[in-house]
Amino acid sequence: MLNYVSKAADAAHGVLRADQRLDFARRLRARIEVERGGSQNARQVAKVLARFGDPVALVEREARRLAEAGVATARDPAGVGARASGGGAGTSLGTAGSGTAGPGTTGPRTAGTGAVTRPVSGPVSGPSDGAGAGGGATRPLPAVDGEEAPPGVRAYRGIAQDSLDRRQGMGLPFAGLRRAAMSSANPMATGGRDARTIVKEYPRDTAALVILVLAALLVPFHLPAVAIFQIPLVVWAVGAVMVLFSDAWNVRDRFVGAGAPLLGYAVGGVLIGGLRVGIEAGMEAFVTQFFDVSGTMFMIGTGAGVLWLAYRLLDVN
């Protein structure tokens, strides 16, 4: 958000006066704060900024508004734009005899002198608010949603949306994982997402991953069974249910993450146990080897499933 406002302020150099530029940047930031509604989600804020469009287009719109109101800018120091469009005496800066400010001007004029005081800005309002049409308050930034937005805004919004879609869908392999790894060095590289934000955004899903890890860590302790069920299996069942009913992953990811421990236990135990005893060892030796290695394979499967779910949570779409 600060980067976006900074780009707008840079674009205003040479177009708006210093006081107008500061006032414009302040109103722009205030409007963005209103639109994001206090959200700390980086993707939500990115979508809000995409709706605002190109910062340069916003600066040009502000310059046109001031010119139409007869207010001098850095580009038009004498307010020529307003006089050329039909404004008569008393409509531009430096013209005596005008005691009130026109609609949308950035400050009141002093009667008889043409002097302009420091801009006075009213509170930023919604798109339909009429503030700024009088009373010496600046106009709020116009709405940027809908088909009536300027072509530049619509084009910039489409570019930003395409960029978001590529990040979510057809990005490079493991792009989300690389962004997370880079977060400590360059937070801008992750789009504001790191392990801490993931935990804050998805507390129940993170808890499910922790429960699955706990189930794997309990395997080596050989705890007594509850009825006929081993405690690691009971803990895994709790975590698996939380994963299967989560909205953070798609259906395939849920089944892969929750089923990887059982897949490792069953298939891994059969394969590794069979390889260790050979074909002619007999069923009893095979069963012994199966139970010797199945616990380890359960832990390996749990680790693989949790890593996959964590990666998908970092790169959730």
Rank of each mutant, 00 (worst) to 15 (best):
G269R: 02
A281Y: 08
M242H: 11
L262M: 13
W236T: 08
V241A: 14
A285L: 09
A237L: 14
F221P: 01
R252H: 11
N250A: 02
Q230W: 12
A240F: 02
R254H: 01
Q230P: 07
M283E: 12
I279Y: 15
L275Y: 14
L271W: 13
G282L: 08
W249Y: 06
A227D: 10
V243F: 07
L262N: 09
E284L: 06
A237T: 11
G282D: 07
G259A: 05
W249H: 08
F221W: 12
S246T: 03
G269N: 03
G259W: 03
N250W: 00
L263V: 15
V267Q: 06
Q230M: 12
V238S: 05
I279E: 15
G269I: 04
V270L: 14
V251G: 07
H222S: 13
M242N: 10
A225P: 02
A225E: 12
R254A: 01
L244K: 05
V226N: 04
G264H: 03
L275W: 15
V241C: 03
F286C: 05
I228R: 13
S246R: 00
V243G: 04
A240R: 00
N250L: 00
L233T: 12
Y265N: 07
I279T: 13
L271F: 14
P220W: 13
L271E: 08
L263Q: 03
A266L: 14
M242W: 15
G282V: 08
A227P: 00
V241I: 12
P232E: 01
I279P: 12
G282Q: 08
F221M: 11
P261Y: 02
L263P: 01
G273R: 03
R254Y: 01
L223K: 04
G282M: 04
G278Q: 08
G278A: 09
E284C: 00
L223Y: 02
L275Q: 14
G264V: 09
G269T: 03
V270H: 10
G268Y: 10
V234Q: 09
P261I: 01
G274D: 08
V219T: 07
P232I: 01
G268T: 05
G282E: 06
E284I: 05
F255N: 01
N250F: 02
M283D: 13
M283S: 11
V256P: 00
L223C: 05
M283T: 10
V234R: 07
V241D: 02
D253R: 04
V243P: 00
L263M: 13
L271C: 09
Q230L: 14
A266S: 12
V234L: 15
A240D: 00
A227L: 15
E284D: 10
A225S: 12
E284W: 02
G264L: 07
P261H: 06
